[in-house]
């Protein structure tokens, strides 16, 4: 028993020492000079990075950032070289910081780290608080805390302007393949912020999941907000043309667009558009 206690003591001391060392090195690296060659490989981090980066600091954004269907900053992304999220091309850009989204390909991130590149992974922002945190976190990573505070202040002013206590009725989000979003998602947050009650709440749906068409019809939403159609045709999107949807929500169909994709200050435009 005593031997066990002694050994566990030793392990604890050793662990504490290791933790202090790790923390020390983390502080040292974050206190160091701001990164000079930053590559973003995710549509959402692309936008916040473009908003915050110093001139010349951001060397590449993802190819999706130039897609006007998904990116509200598609025009500005034209000024940056693009990457396709592949380890090889990103390594050849000689970045000192790579910013990836949570859903980035695991092997790519692991490969970059193995090659000695610092990779920071940011989770998607699904509500207003998370957007605030994301802006501050990106500001810290880029060494642009002042710019981040400025962008955040503008976002807060926009939120106050957008805030309305009006009850605009019950609305439903409906996407291809019959998916809907509840309150724990960015789309649900936008809907609530614009003054709607989300029918997904009544049905106990908090995340994004499939909702049978007949459940949606029975819920009788006052307004229907559907996903944007992509070029080409698909059966998954055909459900948005189902006659039953046109019957329950005539002339009130709205379409989600690029301002709905990412948790960035651009969600203010999505909220305004719903009013």
């Amino acid at each position: 028993m005593r031997a066990f206690v002694r050994r566990s003591d030793r392990i604890r001391r050793w662990l504490t020492a290791a933790l202090i060392a790790a923390a020390g090195s983390a502080i040292a690296s974050s206190a160091g000079a701001a990164p000079q060659r930053v590559v973003s490989m995710n549509l959402c981090t692309d936008q916040i990075a473009m908003l915050l980066a110093a001139p010349g600091q951001l060397v590449s954004v993802s190819d999706l950032a130039r897609d006007p269907r998904m990116s509200p900053m598609a025009d500005r992304a034209q000024d940056y070289p693009i990457n396709h999220g592949r380890a090889e091309e990103i390594y050849l850009m000689r970045p000192d910081l790579v910013i990836a989204g949570q859903y980035a390909s695991g092997p790519t991130v692991a490969m970059l780290r193995r090659l000695g590149v610092r990779v920071e992974v940011l989770p998607p922002a699904e509500d207003i608080d998370a957007i605030r945190a994301e802006i501050m976190r990106m500001g810290g990573l880029l060494g642009r805390e002042d710019k981040a505070a400025e962008v955040l202040a503008r976002f807060e002013r926009g939120l106050i302007l957008a805030d309305s206590n009006a009850d605009r009725g019950r609305a439903a989000l409906y996407y291809a393949n019959g998916y809907t979003s509840g309150r724990d998602t960015l789309a649900g947050t936008i809907l609530t912020a614009a003054g709607y009650r989300n029918v997904a709440d009544d049905l106990g749906i908090t995340d994004t999941r499939s909702l049978p068409l007949e459940m949606l019809v029975m819920a009788r939403p006052d307004r229907l907000i559907t996903g944007a159609k992509w070029p080409g045709q698909s059966r998954g999107e055909a459900i948005l043309d189902h006659p039953a949807l046109a019957r329950i929500a005539p002339e009130t169909a709205e379409v989600t667009d690029r301002d709905w994709v990412c948790g960035t200050p651009f969600v203010l435009r999505a909220i305004e558009a719903l009013k």
Binding site: A176, N177, W230, P231, G232, Q233, S234, R235, G236, E237
Partner: peptide
């Protein structure tokens, strides 16, 4: 080959 992101998932259907 379709430009639509949902199309490829519909092979199963």
């Amino acid at each position: 080959l379709s430009p639509n992101p949902y199309a490829a998932n519909e092979i199963v259907f």
